[in-house]
Amino acid sequence: MAQRLATEFVNARLLLPESQMSKFMQHIQDPRIRYRVRVLESGSREIVLEDESGEEVNLPFDRRRNLFVCELSFRLVNPRLTHMIRRLFVAFRGDGMVRRIYPGFVMLDFYAEGSVRRIIELTPGASRLVFEHRDQVPELEYRFGSTDIEREIENIRMRVDLLLDRRHASLNPEEIERIDKMLRRESRRLFILEA
């Protein structure tokens, strides 16, 4: 497996309601990562995370009414600090792009509301879509709501009822044989649709 050289968070954004700030602070508890919090005059906060190697990242949370908004772009090398930021990003439903840089290629992860929506691999001279989230709920709702098969089953049952009525009323053996043939065809079709 390729060794990651660095991770860049590009135009990353976290929106935290005021009530979630204490939960955010609980998420950054790690014995190998120190943090400092500065509360500014406007109620905004600046959280600085520093790992044991000395690498640090500054998370500026601007207070906007009852929300704390953190917009940032930075590059990290240390895996522990990178992992913590990614966990925070997922837990608090962040948006933005993450560039994972490896020798010879780059992986672009596009996040929306804390979930990866698309992953693209960039190599010199080429790009490849690795993953793309597809919302399958509309398709499932359509299939669930679709009544085409139920209508066809109902139509077959009505045709079978009519054929049975004609069969009981008929005295002609050739017509009865023709009706039986149609009944067999309809019953096969009905069996397929109901299965």
Rank of each mutant, 00 (worst) to 15 (best):
D148Y: 13
I33Q: 10
R100K: 13
L88K: 05
D135G: 06
V37P: 05
N66Y: 05
A112S: 10
N78R: 14
N78G: 14
R100Y: 06
R4M: 10
R99M: 12
Q3S: 07
R4K: 12
I47P: 09
Y102K: 03
F92D: 00
M107R: 11
D165E: 15
L183G: 12
V48L: 14
L59C: 12
L59Y: 03
L108C: 03
S53W: 08
G94C: 04
N58W: 06
R159H: 12
P124M: 00
L67W: 13
L88D: 03
P173D: 02
T123I: 01
R75H: 08
R36D: 13
S170M: 04
A6M: 08
G125Y: 00
E174G: 10
A12C: 11
H168R: 14
R32P: 05
K181D: 13
L14S: 01
S42L: 08
T7K: 06
L171G: 05
N155A: 15
R45V: 14
V37T: 12
F105L: 02
S146Y: 04
V77G: 08
L171F: 10
R167Q: 14
R151L: 15
S187A: 13
M97P: 01
Q26T: 04
F61W: 02
S146I: 07
E152L: 15
G43M: 07
H133Q: 04
G54H: 12
M97V: 13
M158R: 15
V37K: 07
V57K: 03
R4H: 03
S73Q: 02
E41R: 12
R178S: 13
S22P: 01
R166H: 14
D180S: 11
D30Q: 12
G125R: 00
P60E: 04
T123S: 04
K23H: 06
L164R: 15
E177N: 06
V130M: 03
M1E: 09
R87C: 09
E46M: 13
E177R: 13
R157T: 06
R128Q: 08
R134P: 01
D95E: 08
L129E: 08
V48D: 06
I101F: 01
D109I: 05
I28C: 04
Y35I: 05
E8N: 10
R143Y: 10
V10W: 03
H168S: 13
R189N: 13
L16P: 03
S22L: 09
Y102E: 04
F105C: 02
R134C: 04
V48Y: 09
L15G: 04
E52H: 12
L59W: 01
N58A: 12
E132Q: 12
E8D: 12
S187H: 09
